[in-house]
């Protein structure tokens, strides 16, 4: 338990320490979720065993505790994914506004199926199951967690072009 091995940069440990300070002293587990988010962000959008073990060591908790969390929440990727994550909301309200067509359009455009990343690793089209809470702007999608609403094919093309050219 004294094993403090980890592979984080000094900056990262500072950020984790900051997250930890939001919770009572003996509740380091509470810092898992937010820490994993920043660690994932720092690691091209996905987590691996080494990062999970490192966080466990850094927080002095069991590795399985971190792993349990990493596999429960849908925003964590345990395999490499494309750089930009696209989540098209396909839940009821968006579905009623033809979000399925938006998905097909993106699939065709990027030549991938939902759940896959593009060959050039630029995009990852997440199989989003949740409603993204922008129902009055349906159909909508998030790209890297920025909302784009009232989508049309043209709008989608423009957004993807801009990101691809970034």
């Amino acid at each position: 338990m004294t094993d403090a091995k980890h592979i984080f940069s000094e900056n990262m440990t500072k950020e984790i320490d900051l997250i930890r300070s939001k919770f009572p002293k003996d509740k380091s587990k509470s810092a898992i979720i937010e820490s994993l988010l920043i660690i994932q962000h720092d690691n091209n959008g996905f987590l691996n065993d080494e990062l999970i073990a490192s966080l466990a060591n850094y927080l002095s908790i069991q590795k399985i505790d971190v792993y349990e969390v990493a596999t429960f929440y849908s925003m964590f990727n345990l395999k490499p994914v494309g750089k930009n994550t696209i989540s098209v909301c396909t839940n009821v309200s968006c579905m009623l506004r033809n979000s399925d067509d938006i998905v097909s359009h993106i699939e065709k455009r990027l030549k991938i199926k939902i759940g896959e990343s593009t060959k050039d690793n630029k995009f990852y089209l997440k199989d989003e199951m949740e409603c993204l809470a922008a129902c009055n702007g349906a159909p909508m999608m998030q790209v890297n967690h920025i909302n784009y609403e009232n989508l049309t094919f043209e709008k989608v093309d423009k957004i993807l072009d801009e990101i691809a050219n970034d």
Partner: peptide
């Protein structure tokens, strides 16, 4: 980090506890 169920109040408490 993505889980509808966390909206349920006790699940939210579990989530804040890092579980």
């Amino acid at each position: 980090a993505g889980a509808y169920i966390v909206g349920e109040e006790t699940a939210m408490l579990e989530s804040i506890e890092g579980k």
